[in-house]
């Protein structure tokens, strides 16, 4: 190890940014779970809402991808 304090900060920051992936996972799970419980309650309406489901998942996941991007930027680009 070179003992560079800046590197230390980078790696710690990247690791912290990785928490965002977990948060996004919670969000996506929430969307899918709520969709499923709604769909089981009213299966006839579920088929028309799959597009909405995917849009919701995409929005939730985009933020997780942002945190992944932050981690990558800290690791490789800063």
């Amino acid at each position: 190890m070179e003992g560079d304090i800046a590197n230390l900060g980078q790696y710690i920051g990247a690791g912290l940014a990785g928490i965002g992936s977990g948060a996004a996972a919670i969000g996506v799970g929430n969307v899918a779970g709520n969709f499923l419980s709604g769909a089981l309650r009213n299966p006839s309406a579920a088929a028309g809402q799959t597009a909405t489901l995917f849009i919701g998942i995409a929005f939730a996941e985009a933020l997780g991808i942002f945190s992944f991007l932050v981690a990558l930027l800290l690791m490789f680009a800063v």
């Binding site: 190890m1 070179e2 560079d4 800046a6 590197n7 980078q10 690791m75 490789f76 680009a77 800063v78």
Partner: peptide, 17 residues
């Protein structure tokens, strides 16, 4: 991105280690 070459090199050195 000339500014970050030093940090980058250090990063690669750490990986190689």
């Amino acid at each position: 991105e000339g500014a970050s070459h030093a940090a980058e090199a250090a990063g690669h050195a750490a990986e190689g280690g």
